[in-house]
Design a protein around this nucleic acid. Sequence first.
DNA 1: GTGGTCTAGACCACC
DNA 2: GTGGTCTAGACCACC
Lengths: 122, 122, 122, 122
Amino acid sequence: MILSLDFSSDTPIYIQIRNQIILGISDGRLAPGEKLPTNRSLAMEIGVNTMTVNKAYQLLKQEGYIITERRNGAMVSQNLSKEESFMKRSHEALKLLISEAKINGVKKEEFLNICSELYEEG
Amino acid sequence: MILSLDFSSDTPIYIQIRNQIILGISDGRLAPGEKLPTNRSLAMEIGVNTMTVNKAYQLLKQEGYIITERRNGAMVSQNLSKEESFMKRSHEALKLLISEAKINGVKKEEFLNICSELYEEG
Amino acid sequence: MILSLDFSSDTPIYIQIRNQIILGISDGRLAPGEKLPTNRSLAMEIGVNTMTVNKAYQLLKQEGYIITERRNGAMVSQNLSKEESFMKRSHEALKLLISEAKINGVKKEEFLNICSELYEEG
Amino acid sequence: MILSLDFSSDTPIYIQIRNQIILGISDGRLAPGEKLPTNRSLAMEIGVNTMTVNKAYQLLKQEGYIITERRNGAMVSQNLSKEESFMKRSHEALKLLISEAKINGVKKEEFLNICSELYEEG
DNA sequence: GTGGTCTAGACCACC
DNA sequence: GTGGTCTAGACCACC
């Protein structure tokens, strides 16, 4: 799995790493139970410090997307949480995105179609 | 129009101001062509530095949501439909939200229903 | 407020800092709304790296005990969360402590008395 | 006696083994004088290294909960009452738990009731 | 001035 | 060998 990072972005690198891994899980490039690269190897590969990778993994672990074991490294969580609270948490962000879409003249049907396609994609 | 800010949030204040104004435009509290408060008066009202308001306005201007004229201050843009720039900007964020929803077990129908409701709301 | 740290302990320093601050809030040495030292000043004072203090503050923030603002530094949260979920989270740790007490011949009344005293203390 | 371990927990395996054995002694599943499995058999059973079991046993021995003899393997200690050493060891942990409970709005009566129930349980 | 992020190293506990 | 912690620096965004 290849991570595409933008070092000049405002989004911190560890957040970008987190986001990329979430996208990977969502579209199936990373399967539940699959091992992730070690801190060191991923850090080497993408040219960042191990602390930065560690921070991303800590966040993903805390969010329940991965688990880390001292002996086996990190792997994608096997029972992804079906967390009811998720939509509550992301409600505000979604509301903002939809408001922007509306202002930009995106009709409801159109917006739902885009969402539908993105959902199918991965 | 009242802006609700959370000073202890991770989201920078100028981004919060921007977001609130976008929500206001979307739900009709701010009409196209309507004048926004001056930097100074808004800064006074919400208790922040004028530079912070200025930064929010600059961002909104750059995104095409408002127009600023030296004489008249800022006002909501009157032709707001430019789908393409929006979809380019927001595609990534929407994709991430949908990916997270999927991983958390939110079914497509359910997600679209929520979007539909939020679209109707404001 | 003075923090007593044990650098030779197995408990990581950032956890010790967190624990000490929780104790301080509990016994009133730190009042809700009170400002905490800045990362830098606390780090200097106790002779650790700013990252270590930062990690402790991040944890306390995430647990809802403090809030951090970029401009004002960190302060004790003003509405401490009355979180119902707390006893659920700490149930296991309490169960273990009580089991140890029992094995060591501490009678129920005695244990409750100790708890009662500790509760009054701070 | 079955040990339930969580390999993805932050708590080291040898500590989890120790804790489970303490819980077992407390609720009577393990009686004073009862023999514990050998290092090797327990290690096999739960799928860990013998060193890990050994470390747990060493800790339990040091805390006075079990006795190890070269010939007979390990067994639950027959005289388990040494209040003082326990209270010294656990005082700090209990104090912290109670402080957190207080901050989270758990009243003293409520806390004592929960302790009382847990004490009866096992 | 503040918190937040990041680097290039290092050491340690666990297994 | 692995993740976790820590240091001594540095720079940046925000305000």
